[in-house]
Simulated assay, not measured.
Amino acid sequence: MVYIASDTRYDKMQYNKCGESGLKLPGVSLGFWHNFGDISSFENMRNICFTAFDNGITHFDFANNYGPEYGAAERNGGRILHDYFKNYRDELIVSTKAGYDMWKGPYGNGGSRKYLLASLDQSLQRLQLDYVDIFYHHRPDPDTPLEETMGALATAVTSGKALYAGLSNYDGAAMKKAAAILRDLKIPFVINQNSYNIFNRGVERNGLLEEARNEKKGVICFSPLAQGLLTDRYLDGIPKDSRIAADPRFLRSDAVNEDYLKKARALNELAGERGQTLAEMALAWVLKDSTVTSVLVGASRPSQILDNIKALENTRFTAEELKKIDEISLGIVGK
């Protein structure tokens, strides 16, 4: 089959700059962490990508070890890109990462020059691309000098195998040091990828959001729905068809406890008052901060893409709403 993208794909999507750079990302980006491994239906993967791009989602985010098995998401994504998106490559932002465990032996994880550049070459082969738009170091590596890791990102860019450098899971202090090195090397470091949602405020406490503003870098947030906890999926407990028990990549069953149910139901009530679903409000809450460039969403079916995009219709919150969300998420509700 031949894929022809919708003529109206750019009509409704919101695009935000990555800090002070010229690069823009859609407010909602598609993550390939789940649902693009070898245990998933290729037809469904393909249709998720079609729906995403048809609705203005121009950013597809990978990592070397997304699967299962390791490399499977890049391999399946590469097949989709090659077979259906060749004519749209210049309209896409494709990102990938290296930093976590990927292959056996001493050179298969971390932040060494050896690992990062070898991993990027492998990723490009799986993705069937000449370059990625953003190449991230996936996690800080205390066993490798920061200068070596940033030097590897610099080589990725200067070699033409990546257009921009990114950092993932760095705190504010580490990001600031890395930014200084990359600035001296004249490398376009534009974005940080970190977990952030109503329940997980780590980037507020560790200085990442503050330093991203200071350094004028973008932030893209993964797990904005707390792996489903910020949806209506678990408001009545764990459904019988839930993947929690069957798939260890997903939530632990003990996450759905009485404390969670109390908080989630209170948040769901507030979302209803705003005319949103809990998921829409959770995504909108992350995007309320202008430092946040985009949220990464996963999808197990195309309709979820459309549901997530609806969050962009209302990302404004009153001071009272924000106060109430804080009170609920910090555990004050019911006390």
Rank of each mutant, 00 (worst) to 15 (best):
V2K: 14
T8V: 12
D11I: 14
K12C: 08
Y15P: 05
K17P: 00
S21V: 03
L30C: 00
N35P: 05
C49Q: 04
F50C: 03
T51G: 01
T58W: 07
A63C: 09
P68Q: 02
G71A: 07
F85R: 08
D90V: 04
E91W: 10
A98K: 00
D101F: 15
M102A: 14
G105E: 10
G110I: 05
Y115W: 14
S119T: 05
Q125A: 12
I134T: 05
R139Q: 15
D143C: 12
T149V: 09
A152G: 11
L153Y: 14
T158W: 15
A165S: 13
G166Q: 05
L167G: 02
A173D: 10
A179Q: 12
A180V: 15
N200I: 08
E204A: 08
L209R: 11
E211V: 06
G218F: 02
G218Y: 03
G228K: 00
G237Q: 06
P239V: 01
D247G: 06
A255N: 11
E258Y: 11
K262W: 04
T277K: 09
E280L: 07
A284T: 01
V286S: 13
V286E: 10
T291Y: 13
S294K: 03
R301T: 07
F317G: 13
E320S: 02
E320I: 04
E321Q: 02
G334I: 05
